[in-house]
């Protein structure tokens, strides 16, 4: 501004030019913005209409009925409130199975994710030329939806928790591997150099030089993944992999009059997820906080 006022005699036309240019720029920006917005809204509307057309029930009809089913379930649950604790106890083992699937797959996934991430980080990789290969392997592991592996494995291994565990573990290995390798990039390479100067093997270098640096972040990401995996294992149960999801499917298929069991499962699932979220949130906070100090 000071410059502008400092040269008033000859300044009229350049100021005008700047002004014109600015106005022009703003106008063009606004035009682009408006066009983008229109295209975007059109896409949303067209997408919504297509989805509505291809759906069994229309949005307008279904909208009024959203709360019918929850209301039915809840009213029945209230009616048979005395039986709820019994149902909760009955389904508790299934919940434990779901939690076990999530925990085991997180553990296995974290172990493989650690290996993948170490092998795919520059400066730490055992075979530096294979870094792109391990990156692609992680990408593919991440890209495959759990349900695909789970369904194929159910065909091969029969129903039960193991297919779900393997399926979630594969996905977790890919997802955690990517996050872990981002953590690894920020780790100092000096401890590794120090260790290799005294003749440490690759495993020793990683275990003593890298893992202590990245441990808290790893655990924090693994906890986050555990939360996600509980939900995933509940969903996979629904397609036949055991656990609480499977029980939910059965309870729902009995239909009216037996909704109290479904209600018990809903409550169990809800409480579990909230509790695990809270605990893991606290733990993660502490881990990250500790790491910062």
């Amino acid at each position: 501004m000071a410059d502008l006022t400092a040269a008033p005699p000859s300044g009229a036309s350049p100021t005008e030019a700047i002004r014109a240019q600015y106005v022009e720029l703003t106008r063009r920006k606004r035009l682009y913005g408006t066009v983008l917005l229109i295209v975007f809204v059109a896409m949303m509307v067209a997408g919504f209409r297509t989805a509505d057309d291809r759906n069994a029930g229309s949005f307008a009809d279904g909208f009024t009925r959203i709360f019918d089913y929850p209301a039915e379930v809840l009213s029945e649950a209230v009616e048979k409130a005395a039986q709820l604790p019994g149902h909760v106890m009955h389904f508790f083992p299934a919940l434990i199975e779901t939690l076990n699937i999530a925990a085991a797959s997180t553990l296995i996934g974290a172990i493989f994710g650690t290996l993948f991430s170490l092998l795919a980080t520059r400066g730490m990789a055992l075979w530096p030329s294979l870094i792109p290969l391990f990156r692609r392997v992680m990408d593919i592991c991440r890209a495959i939806p759990e349900i695909v592996i789970a369904l194929v494995l159910i065909f091969l291994l029969g129903g039960g928790p193991v297919p779900a565990m393997i399926a979630i573990a594969i996905h977790t290995a890919g997802a955690l591997g990517k996050l872990f390798s981002e953590v690894n990039e920020n780790a100092s390479l000096k401890p590794i150099e120090g260790l290799s100067s005294v003749g440490a093997t690759w495993a020793q270098r990683m275990w003593l030089g890298v893992i202590p640096q990245v441990g808290p972040n790893y655990v924090s990401y693994a906890l986050l993944r555990f939360e996600i995996n509980i939900r995933a294992s509940a969903i996979l149960g629904f397609v036949g992999a055991g656990g609480i999801g499977y029980e939910l499917k059965n309870a729902m298929s009995w239909g009216k009059g037996r909704y109290d069991e479904a209600a018990a499962i809903f409550i169990l699932l809800f409480v579990t997820i909230v509790v695990v979220d809270q605990i893991s949130g606290k733990l993660r906070d502490r881990l990250i906080h500790g790491a910062k100090q």
Partner: peptide, 27 residues
Amino acid sequence: DFVRGVDSLIWTVVLARAFGPGPLTGA
């Protein structure tokens, strides 16, 4: 918190009851 706590599985089941199968329900 509530919406996040009710698992997507439960939402899917509840919404499938109201809207029937199809992409709109999934969306």
